[in-house]
């Protein structure tokens, strides 16, 4: 047998299993296999190896599926509850912003009136007005950050407790 032909045949035998070969290559290989016993034994060895690989079984703990399903359902519930809470938070933020904008002229006048009647420097009552605007937003930002941190911790808790 020609070593180059054998080498080509061996390459094709492996390629046949791994990625497939064209019809013409298959035709050539079949013709070669019909007259080359060593290449034919390589085909058989490959087939034995693949068959053996497919026989490996892994027995699963029967409770694994139900435990996993229960754990996933619980986590889905937590995520849904969290989503509802976040939605409520965003709605209240939006509402607060709309009301804040609508009432800004009135609040400005109220701060101005207090400033004049209490004889406060304008910087003080203007700072009071700014804080009136910033404090609620700041509180919400803290709340959102706290909530996100809590969610992240919960996610960490679900990663393989050891």
């Amino acid at each position: 047998m020609n070593p180059e032909t054998d080498e080509r045949a061996r390459r094709l035998i492996d390629a046949w299993q791994v990625e497939g070969i064209s019809a013409s290559e298959r035709g050539w290989l079949d013709a070669h296999l019909a007259e080359c016993s060593s290449c034919q034994s390589r085909v058989e060895a490959n087939e034995r190896a693949l068959q053996a690989l497919r026989t490996i079984s892994f027995s699963v703990n029967p409770a694994l599926v139900s435990t996993t399903q229960a754990r996933v359902r619980l986590r889905a519930l937590e995520l849904r509850e969290n989503q509802v809470r976040m939605r409520a938070l965003w709605i209240s933020c939006a509402l607060s912003w709309v009301l804040g904008v609508a009432s800004a002229p009135l609040v400005w006048r109220a701060f101005q009136w207090i400033g004049i009647h209490a004889a406060l420097p304008s910087l003080i009552w203007k700072t009071g007005f700014a804080l009136w605007w910033l404090l609620p937003a700041g509180a919400v930002a803290v709340l959102v950050a706290w909530n996100q941190r809590r969610t992240a911790n919960q996610e960490d808790d679900t990663t393989l407790p050891r």
């Binding site: 699963v60 399903q69 996933v72």
Partner: peptide
């Protein structure tokens, strides 16, 4: 949608292949 029924079905479907 985080559909729990779909997840149940998928978990069952891959109960051998994924652990292996």
């Amino acid at each position: 949608r985080r559909d729990p029924d779909l997840l149940d079905e998928l978990i069952g479907r891959y109960q051998y292949r994924l652990p292996r």
